[in-house]
Simulated assay, not measured.
Amino acid sequence: MLLGIWNRKVERKTEEKMASTMVENPPPHLITTIEWSMMDKGKFFPLYTLSSFTVRCALYPLTLVKTQIQLQRKKEAYSGVADAISKIYRHEGVSGLYRGFWLSSFQIISGVFYISTYEGVRHELGKYDVSPKVKSFIGGGCASLVGQTIIVPFDVLSQHLMVLGLVKGRAGGSKNPKINPLGLNLDARLSKSQLAREVARRVYQQHGVLGYYRGYLASLAAYVPNSALWWALYTAYQDELLKICPTWVSHLLIQCVAGTLGGFTTTILTNPLDIVRARLQVEGVGTMRKVFKDLWAEEGLWGLYAKGLSARLLQSACFSSSIILGYETIKRLAVADQYRAHVRW
């Protein structure tokens, strides 16, 4: 009996000592979101720029194919993504898949402003009682507004270059105002830089300075909701996956899956707006309402909603997972030393 009382006293003292130790040295808290204030900006920006350029370079052919499929009439050129890639490669080689890339690569500049705005807005909203999902939604919308204001002129020019792939090799294609609205002479032996300058000159001649911002409102209508929804859904999917996944599952893997799911959801919801944006920027036909009406008259619900959807879903899946992989990896590499132990890979 005395031995039992002694054992209970020893057990109680051991438990009290363990509890005291845990209070003095609490287990590290897992940081699921690395905030703007936690990072070394001198490391973050160079790494983010390099990562963004690499991802855009690797995935640009999908962007080009998506644009050409959206702008073709019915299935006059390509029956799908695989058919488009094989035909472009067969007729023009690798350079055909990267038509307009160097102009489009200026998106890297807007990307820096985009991510700075996103993180900055989230940082400011963090001073108030705002939920993470709402912070991500507002931050994503503001970031897209800033990014599109910078990139639309380059987007307009690069899409004119992209769509020339629909003209090349087609009898009378260069005279078709729908796919060659600038009336470019493709028989002239122009270098890529000369062709880009010619496109910029023709846009200015026909539409003035505002021609470089043709489709700007359509871009905002397509991309601001897309960006806001994507970041909010990314945060929401990540939170739900963290609840159901075992602790040994890589947090970075969970974030990549959450980004991909967010990309799929927003692509399905906003695809009609992206089709209208692409047509307005290249063809310059009136208003968003007119483009909607023309698409409905030409191709019905399929043309209005599903045109280029498979290409955009494929692009979105690759782009979302790649961007998140690069973005979240760079945040971990750039995080300040005092937070490093609290971040799980």
Results as ranks from 00 to 15, higher is better:
Ser219Val: 08
Ser219His: 06
Leu220Met: 15
Ala221Cys: 14
Ala221Arg: 08
Ala222Leu: 06
Ala222Ser: 15
Ala222Gly: 10
Ala222Gln: 07
Tyr223Phe: 15
Tyr223Met: 15
Val224Ser: 10
Val224Ile: 15
Val224Gly: 04
Val224Ala: 09
Pro225Cys: 08
Pro225Arg: 09
Pro225Lys: 13
Asn226Asp: 12
Ser227Phe: 01
Ser227Ile: 02
Ser227Lys: 03
Ser227Asn: 08
Ser227Val: 04
Ser227His: 05
Ser227Pro: 03
Ala228Leu: 08
Leu229Val: 13
Leu229Arg: 03
Leu229Cys: 14
Leu229His: 07
Trp230Pro: 00
Trp230Thr: 13
Trp230Gly: 02
Trp231Glu: 09
Trp231Met: 11
Trp231Ile: 00
Trp231Thr: 02
Ala232Cys: 14
Ala232Gly: 05
Leu233Tyr: 07
Leu233Arg: 01
Leu233Cys: 12
Tyr234Leu: 07
Tyr234Trp: 11
Thr235Cys: 05
Thr235Asp: 07
Thr235Arg: 13
Ala236Ser: 13
Ala236Val: 05
Gln238Ser: 11
Gln238Met: 14
Gln238Cys: 08
Gln238Lys: 07
Glu240Ile: 08
Glu240Ala: 15
Glu240Phe: 12
Leu242Lys: 10
Leu242Val: 08
Leu242Gln: 11
Leu242Asn: 07
Leu242Ile: 06
Leu242Glu: 04
Lys243Pro: 01
Lys243Gly: 01
Lys243Met: 07
Ile244Pro: 02
Ile244Trp: 10
Cys245Val: 04
Cys245His: 12
Cys245Gly: 06
Cys245Asp: 02
Pro246Tyr: 05
Pro246Asn: 07
Pro246Leu: 09
Thr247Gly: 01
Thr247Ala: 06
Thr247Tyr: 02
Trp248Cys: 05
Trp248Lys: 02
Ser250Thr: 10
Ser250Met: 05
Ser250Lys: 08
Ser250Asp: 06
Leu252Ile: 01
Leu252Arg: 06
Leu253Asn: 12
Leu253Lys: 09
Gln255Phe: 03
Cys256Leu: 02
Val257Leu: 15
Val257Arg: 03
Val257Met: 09
Ala258Val: 03
Ala258Lys: 00
Ala258Phe: 01
Ala258Asn: 02
Ala258Gln: 04
Gly259Ile: 02
Gly259His: 02
Gly259Phe: 02
Gly259Arg: 03
Thr260Phe: 09
Thr260Trp: 10
Thr260Ile: 11
Thr260Gly: 14
Leu261Lys: 09
Leu261Trp: 01
Leu261Phe: 10
Gly262Ala: 12
Gly263Gln: 12
Gly263Ala: 14
Phe264Met: 13
Phe264Val: 15
Phe264Thr: 07
Phe264Gln: 04
Thr265Gly: 06
Thr265Tyr: 10
Thr266His: 05
Ile268Glu: 02
Ile268Ser: 05
Leu269Ala: 11
Leu269Glu: 05
Leu269Gln: 09
Leu269Ile: 12
Leu269Tyr: 04
Leu269Lys: 11
Thr270Asn: 12
Thr270Ile: 13
Pro272Asp: 04
Pro272Ala: 11
Pro272Arg: 13
Asp274Trp: 04
Asp274Gly: 08
Ile275Val: 15
Ile275Asn: 04
Val276Ala: 12
Val276Leu: 15
Arg277Trp: 13
Ala278Asn: 10
Ala278Leu: 07
Ala278Cys: 12
Arg279Tyr: 08
Arg279Val: 03
Arg279Ser: 05
Gln281Ala: 15
Gln281Cys: 12
Val282Asp: 00
Val282Lys: 00
Val282Ala: 01
Glu283Leu: 03
Glu283Cys: 05
Glu283Asn: 04
Gly284Pro: 01
Gly284Asn: 10
Gly284Leu: 11
Gly286Ala: 15
Gly286Thr: 14
Thr287Val: 09
